[in-house]
Design a protein around this nucleic acid. Structure first.
Lengths: 188, 188
DNA sequence: GTCTATAAGCAGATAGAC
DNA sequence: GTCTATCTGCTTATAGAC
């Protein structure tokens, strides 16, 4: 039996790119074949659960990237401001400065709504939790920190939508700036 | 020739409901037939441009509702705070308190991305413009008002996404509260 | 583990009678 | 303006050789 042409991780990476571009419903298996360079049967060999399992793998892969680029910096060493600044860089990179969509949004709406509820909710909770943690470490009371973290995640999601809707990626950058201004500011 | 069974406005209303539920890609013409109560050929008689024209009509209908429920109150009589409060009620109603999706998001992502760019951009611009106007009328400088209005629209969009993603509609209500707190507040 | 070939069904869209 | 019937092509998914 031949060796795999590309690693499963590389397959997941390419699936992620495709799903972020087309969404769940509009991503046909034919397109996913093209994106991965695998023929139909090979893709189904990797993911016997079909398109749904492919999407799950893509979401898991995106989750790992978010963990590395955003969650880890948020929970790492340094002052809260430094940690937040590194996470903002990670967000900008992960979302390609506002030009790449988020699977959380894509998998929460349309035909995919509900299909990936558990994974999607988990990813939102983890990001909001890490953001709240930074705020708490900066001296913000826990309830305020949780509220601000939720607001920050909403601003990221909303900024991405508006960037797509208007074709102006700068909107996303401004959303990130607002988070940087508000998340850690002293209460009073 | 028989009289139409339902008005074109009623057809648009039902199409809007269907597209908000399923999105563009996952909404099949068969589902749109069921939603409107019309058979295939009748629907194509109303909209010779096919599914794309149906979606355009749905978006236009949603735009009229947004105008009535949100834009008009924002630009109407009363103090800025009163106008914003009425618009917040309109937002809550239009989005069913966070349980109904927004066509701006659905038509900006996935397979529909770009298809309705002009209409979508227009609807975002109109809402942001009306929000900025209220802030200006409350004494906020124009550049700050524009920034806050953009932030408000992003918070609405993000709040809707997170409400769907987590199954917790309260997130959307909290997003509205943050807008009420921030949009008109004195600069300093 | 990759491949070619195909199954079975649904997609969007249309023809033409009434 | 509504209807039944249909067309073409693409959809997801599988079978089975190598």
């Amino acid at each position: 039996m031949p060796a795999p042409l590309i690693s499963r991780e590389e397959v997941a990476e390419r699936l992620t790119r495709a799903f972020r571009r087309y969404g769940y419903d509009a991503a046909s298996v034919a397109q996913l074949c093209e994106a991965t360079g695998l023929v139909r049967a090979s893709l189904y060999h990797y993911f016997p659960g079909g398109k749904e399992e492919m999407a799950r793998a893509a979401h898991a892969h995106a989750g790992r990237k978010v963990h590395d680029l955003i969650i880890t910096p948020l929970l790492g060493e340094g002052t809260p401001a430094e940690r937040l600044a590194r996470a903002a860089e990670g967000l900008a990179e992960f979302y390609a400065h506002g030009s790449e969509a988020c699977l959380t949004a894509l998998f929460s709406l349309g035909g995919a709504r509900g299909l990936f509820a558990e994974q999607v909710r988990g990813s939102v909770t983890r990001l909001a939790g890490a953001l709240a943690r930074v705020a708490v470490d900066a001296g913000v009371p826990e309830d305020v920190a949780a509220d601000r973290a939720e607001d920050a995640v909403a601003r990221v999601q909303g900024g991405l939508i508006l960037a797509e809707a208007t074709g102006d990626a700068a909107i996303f950058k401004r959303a990130l700036r607002r988070i940087g201004r508000d998340l850690l500011s002293p209460v009073g």
